[in-house]
Amino acid sequence: MRYEIPAPMLAKAVSTVPDPDKTPGGLLYEPKWDGFRGLIAWDGEEVEIGSRGAKPLTRYFPELVEALPRILPGPCLLDGEIVVATGRSGAQRLDWEALSQRIHPAESRVQKLAVETPAMFIAFDLLALGDEDLRTRPFGKRRARLEDLLEDVEPPVHLTRATDDPSLAARWLAEFEGAGLDGVVAKPLADAYAPGKRALFKIKHARTADVVALGYRVHKSGSGVGSLLVGLYDTDGTLHQVGGVSAWSNARRQELVDELAPLVERDEEGEVVRGEGERSRFAGTKDVSFVRLRPERVLEVRYDQLEGRRFRHTVQFERWRPDREPRSCTYSQLDAVADYDLADVLA
């Protein structure tokens, strides 16, 4: 048999943990793992790992390809998350940067990192078992079958924990962030699997911070502001780039060019000064340079979490803050999250 890997079922953002009584059939809550979405097909002969964006991930995780045939009870199609954990025993957490390093073109580098930062697979849905297609079954039934299948499974595969108690889910939302997780997912128990549909609910942290505008990238169309780069000051007065704001309308992108023009840095010849942005392995040959701005304008943004000293995801614009001094925009305003051992989440 050979499994066809479908597009994954997706989630839409909601502001609070939803009430199960308002969803026919109720809800099951799970931690939201911060990794690469992975659909794993083990047909008894080969392992294939698909991704959310239809990009094959198989070659990047040889340790999973080796382990899965050995520890899975039989052919199956699993939906879950690929994650990497770092830190000493008793203080481990998910590490997005270490995970992103795994996407590398060099085979020797992939093999080296597979040993140094081995990945885990967190399973949260069962789409097929043997010749049986389970995608039309209610999620509650699929979850029960998944629990039976992985009852005695060994690392690096883990079954995600789950609860039908919304108060416990709210506690997970608060506590598990300290282990690198980024929220909670609520799943309707009565629903069939819906590839590509946002039929689940994700609840993430919503916070605000005042940041300094330090530059902008031109939109890919060649006109207007594509993303506004923002920064925070360290205790020694160094301004660090911490993320970007995007999702402007076409009209607003053009307006921003005029609004920010007085802040654009220029050299002695009057030419615009450009900075070189940080390049990730996902950027490829993409131009990451940006127009530098004098750090004089403050804006308030919404963010969900930090990864090291940067915002983990693109932040959302809230409002300009003409009442704030740029130097007052420091890391000290950000919420401190209590550490939580990843092993206790996996238990």
Rank of each mutant, 00 (worst) to 15 (best):
E269S: 13
D210W: 02
A343G: 14
G74Y: 05
V83K: 04
V212I: 09
R143K: 07
K22L: 15
F61Y: 12
W248Y: 06
Q316E: 12
S249T: 15
V230E: 08
Y340G: 01
Q305K: 14
L146D: 00
R309Y: 12
G224L: 00
P156A: 09
P62D: 09
E276F: 08
L126I: 00
Y60S: 11
R171S: 11
A206V: 13
G74R: 15
K204E: 05
D133Y: 04
V301K: 08
H313E: 13
D258M: 09
Q333F: 08
R309E: 14
F124P: 01
E325P: 10
R135D: 07
D341A: 11
D133C: 09
Q111T: 13
P322I: 06
G215R: 00
T136A: 15
F36Y: 15
R109V: 15
R171K: 14
R109F: 09
L78G: 01
G308K: 07
Y216Q: 01
F290L: 02
L146W: 00
D287E: 13
L214G: 09
D323P: 05
L334C: 04
G90I: 02
A162L: 03
A251C: 05
E265I: 00
R310L: 10
T163P: 02
Q305H: 13
W320Q: 11
S332F: 11
R2M: 14
A347M: 12
R292C: 06
R292N: 03
L126A: 04
V14M: 03
D287G: 12
G196K: 10
V17K: 04
L134I: 03
F139D: 05
D125K: 02
T86G: 06
A169P: 05
E259I: 04
F61T: 02
K32W: 06
A119N: 06
L168S: 06
A170K: 11
V242I: 14
I71L: 15
S246V: 06
L57T: 05
A194I: 09
A119W: 01
L94V: 10
R279Y: 03
D152H: 15
R137E: 15
Q316K: 09
V273D: 02
V257A: 04
W42S: 07
L99A: 03
R327F: 10
L189Q: 10
V273S: 04
G140C: 01
R312Y: 11
A119L: 04
G26K: 03
R93Y: 06
I82D: 00
L263E: 05
P105W: 06
D191F: 12
G183Q: 00
I82E: 04
V337S: 01
I5K: 09
A119T: 06
L146Q: 00
T86K: 01
D148K: 12
L256P: 01
V264T: 07
E81N: 10
E307N: 14
R2I: 14
P262F: 02
D258A: 14
L10C: 11
H158I: 09
P295G: 08
E255N: 06
Y331R: 08
E300M: 05
E296Q: 15
V211H: 07
G74S: 14
L77C: 03
E278Y: 13
T330S: 13
Y3A: 04
R161G: 12
A13H: 09
D152T: 14
V84C: 03
L334T: 01
E81S: 10
E300D: 10
